[in-house]
């Protein structure tokens, strides 16, 4: 069983975690093209190579991100979500002022 290095709990069997899907940034929901919204919601990249994924440590309810090579299944690094999401996100009104 693969070992996953949780940024909070250290090295653990991967059975302690849940896979949370590919990491994607949400397009501006109020004014992006319908096609790009559909792409975001319904399509997976399913890339062969190094991808960024959400992972969740079940016992601590802790979300984090991992870079994984989908060809070799090697986990390259793991890091807290706050490395990417450092600032508060707000949504504009329907006219679409964009995310901050």
């Amino acid at each position: 069983m693969r070992i996953l290095n949780c940024p909070l709990n250290g090295e653990r069997n991967i059975a302690e975690f849940s896979y949370g899907g590919e990491f994607h940034r949400m397009p501006e929901p109020s004014n992006c093209e319908s096609a790009s919204w559909a792409e975001y919601v319904f399509f997976h990249d399913n890339e062969a190579g190094i991808v960024t994924e959400w992972w969740y440590h079940n016992a601590t309810s802790y979300w984090f991100l991992a870079e994984r090579n989908t060809i070799t299944d090697e986990i390259i690094r793991t890091f807290p979500a706050s490395d990417i999401f450092s600032d508060r996100v707000d949504f504009g009104d329907d006219t679409g002022s964009g995310t901050k």
Binding site: N9, R12, A15, E16, H57, N58, A59, T60
Partner: peptide
């Protein structure tokens, strides 16, 4: 350790 013990957290 916060972990899985006999399949419960």
């Amino acid at each position: 350790a916060q972990t899985s013990l006999a399949r419960v957290s």
